[in-house]
Amino acid sequence: MKVFADVPLHPAALEALAAAGAEVVGWDDPRLSAWAEEAEALINGPMRLDAAAFARARRLKVVAKHGTGIDNIDLKAARARKVRVARSPGGNAQSVTELAVGLAVALARRIVESDARIRSLAPFERGEFTGFDLRGKAAGIVGVGAIGRRVARLLAQGFGMAVSGYDPYLSADDWRRRDAARVARLDDLLARVDLLTLHCPLTDETRGLIGEAELERMKPSAILVNTARGGIVDEPALFSALSDGRLAGAALDVFAAEPPPADHPLFALPNVIATRHVGGYSEEALKAIGLKCVRQILDALAGREPEDAVA
């Protein structure tokens, strides 16, 4: 059994594959480029799986998505070729949640800016990095799914924030089980929050969801966190809002093009924090997800239904 992985796997997952007798070609192995010809199973990270890829991958029986976002996979093509596709929701939800909250506090308190200034030779005044408390302020969550609901709970119970959410796909019953008050229209949410954090998928509907008009509705003292997907926030519009003082700060773990180049215009601004799509990169998440992917592959190859299958 030949398993390819275009993401680094946690040692526990590699052990589980070895124990099942699998031969693994990892993300940093030059043989990875031959995956389409040889793989029976693929543990998929950022690599695009379009119709052409599925057409080439004749031996492929299962794709286990190392994560939740499957906007890089052509599911129709997978179904046409009878390739099972499963994702691992929940596995990195806590990890993304902690990053989103860490970014929010880092923005509110200008932690990264202060750290960078100390490291540079530029002198600074004490009292220069004035921030604000999260406690007692309003947070808005766009997309209150596996991650969004955890963020809502953390901000409400850990920081004493008043949390509201916008998610057109939740039932009244779902809302009762969230620590966020439902706001029916995105525009109403934008105007009232001090912190806006995005946790919806990238879809035709959410591409450019936060653009010039939306940023215009936000308070100039508000901060924005995007750990969902690049493309949901319009980057040029964000740049102008941040440089004109119409928004206090933004933290982005995801960009329209990744990795973002060092000369990305947003990097010229001190009130921006950038990370490298590392929402799911924690020891705990990588282990849980790696092991889940292995279970899904072994199940699919044995003819059993993989957990969280989407094709």
Binding site: E98, L99, V101, G102, L103, V105, A106, A108, R109, I111, V112, D115, A116, R119, P259, P260, P261, A262, D263, H264, F267, I273, A274, T275, R276, V278, Y281, S282
Partner: peptide, 20 residues
């Protein structure tokens, strides 16, 4: 915020991206 920034290497990551 500092604990989370340390745990998730936020400041380091930001620094590296900005300097290419």
């Amino acid at each position: 915020g500092i604990a989370l920034a340390v745990a998730r290497r936020i400041a380091y990551c930001d620094r590296e991206l900005r300097r290419g």
